[in-house]
């Protein structure tokens, strides 16, 4: 059933920009239209483009914020989230913890 929602109504997660829009809801309590506008402005695309997996696949690799396919050398896990935090202007707590651990 979760797959049905993902296909019919979901933003596509890291296939597109669903994780980024979700972060603005969780970090700033933004309603959906505001969260989409914010992320779209930061990425330099239109709101409607955020769930376009073809456009976002290329843009995510260009920004190096993690891509859905397995590409050697692309940012993964914490690396990607560090770059996402900078891109969106938010603090991601596990990234902050990692910075403290490595003395950054």
């Amino acid at each position: 059933m979760p797959v049905a929602h993902s296909v019919a109504s979901g933003m596509g997660g890291i296939r597109a920009a669903g994780d980024l829009v979700a972060r603005m809801q969780l970090h700033r309590k933004m309603r959906l239209p505001e969260a989409k506008r914010y992320v779209a402005e930061r990425l330099g695309v239109r709101s409607v483009d955020l769930s376009d997996e073809v456009l976002m696949r290329e843009l995510r690799e260009e920004l190096d914020i993690g891509v859905v396919t397995s590409v050697p050398g692309c940012a993964k896990g914490l690396e990607a989230k560090w770059r996402i935090a900078d891109l969106l202007g938010v603090e991601i707590q596990c990234v902050e913890r990692f910075k403290r651990k490595v003395g950054v």
Partner: peptide, 29 residues
Amino acid sequence: RVVGVEPGHEVVLTDDGSVNALYGAQSSS
């Protein structure tokens, strides 16, 4: 059989229990 939202109307997904649906038993679907 299957319908979907208009492009641009997609929404964010959160999921309670989430991966329980893979490894869980009947009580968690």
